[in-house]
Simulated assay, not measured.
Amino acid sequence: KDLDSPFPFSDRFNSIFGLNRSRIESSLGSGVIFYSNGYIVTNQHVIGDKSAGITVELSNGLKKEAKIIGIDKGTDLAVLKIDNDHELSSIEIANSDKLRIGDIVLAIVNPYGAGQSVSMGIVSATGREFNNPYSDYIQTDASINRGNSGGALLDSSGRLVGINTLIRSSSGGSEGIGLAIPSTRIVGIINDLIQYGEVRRGWLGFSIDRRVLRVNNLLQISYVNPGGPGEKATLKKGDIIISINNELSSYPLLFKEFARSKPGTTIKFKVLRESKELDLELFTSSMP
């Protein structure tokens, strides 16, 4: 599969497949059978965005041609579909929100195309962003190398908790910092891609002052889009968000609520405006 561009997020990070050249002739990655009728989830950077020449090799050695059902470059996820004469064994999905630092996880991988193998590690952190505003990564020290993009990260019961996506590395190989997209993010994205061919996210209609966030760690609104959900919720420039859905505000929390929202989702804000606290409800809409 021809790929004409390197991994899109940040030059500081290597994709697990090692897209560190301006052009490569073919790509190799892993995938997970998400639904028994032939839907497979993998990383978008493994397959690119054209359907020609994608071959899936199942665990029994059977090879099938696959077509792209949908891709989401923001989260680097893609859904493929293969036709099969019988139902396939799909993976059981766990709630990644229940993961705790120190939990044991297993990475099911295909390092360097050598064949399926398993590495064990722990959850080192959750909620990692790493220069991708759509991310909410699980960080693990399970050994992840080239050829592992799109592979499964499992809990100790063998249930899917994430899709292996990135490594942070100076050498291009595993250095104990692997990143996986959590299962709670994956399910909604995959279902959108299957149903609509794209991911439908909610739109908040306001912007946060990055300087104030960096210096004072406050969520201060810097701009409200005219006619957008923020304006309809009566948010104003200069408002400081102090809670989101009854939780103490933080940028990771704001992003999580945005990333998991759909058009029509209700988000409750408590804001500080001229020394007064106001409770507001925002109804997300489709991106303009």
Results as ranks from 00 to 15, higher is better:
Ser174His: 02
Ile163Leu: 13
Ile186Phe: 11
Gly176Glu: 06
Ile167Lys: 03
Ile186Thr: 11
Ile163Met: 07
Ile189Arg: 04
Ile181Cys: 06
Tyr196Ile: 06
Arg185Gln: 15
Ile177Cys: 01
Asn191Thr: 15
Asp155Met: 09
Ile181Thr: 14
Asp155Val: 07
Leu166Trp: 11
Gly173Ala: 14
Ser171Leu: 03
Gln195Trp: 00
Ile163Ala: 06
Arg159Asn: 13
Ser169Arg: 03
Gly188Asp: 14
Gly197Asp: 12
Gln195Ala: 14
Asn164Leu: 04
Arg185Pro: 00
Ser170Met: 04
Gly176Lys: 07
Gly178Tyr: 03
Ile194Ala: 10
Asp192Ile: 08
Tyr196Ser: 13
Ile181Gly: 04
Ile189Cys: 05
Gly173Val: 07
Arg168Gly: 02
Ser171Lys: 08
Ala180Asn: 08
Gly197Cys: 12
Asp192Tyr: 07
Ser156Val: 12
Asn164Gly: 01
Gly188Asn: 15
Ile186Ser: 09
Asn164Lys: 03
Ile181Met: 14
Ile190Gln: 06
Ser183Lys: 12
Arg159His: 05
Thr165Gly: 10
Leu179Trp: 01
Gly178Asp: 02
Gly173Leu: 11
Pro182Arg: 13
Ile190Pro: 08
Ser169Lys: 03
Ile190Cys: 13
Glu198Gly: 00
Thr165Val: 01
Val187Ala: 13
Leu160Arg: 00
Ile177Leu: 14
Ser170Ala: 06
Ile163Pro: 04
Thr165Gln: 12
Leu193Ile: 15
Val187Glu: 15
Gly162Thr: 05
Leu193Ser: 14
Asp192Phe: 07
Thr184Val: 10
Ile167Pro: 00
Asp155Cys: 06
Gly172Glu: 04
Ile181Arg: 08
Asn191Lys: 15
Ile167His: 00
Ser171Met: 01
Asp192Trp: 07
Gly173Asp: 13
Ile194Leu: 10
Leu179His: 02
Gly162Tyr: 08
Leu160Pro: 00
Ser171Phe: 03
Ile181Ala: 05
Ser183Thr: 12
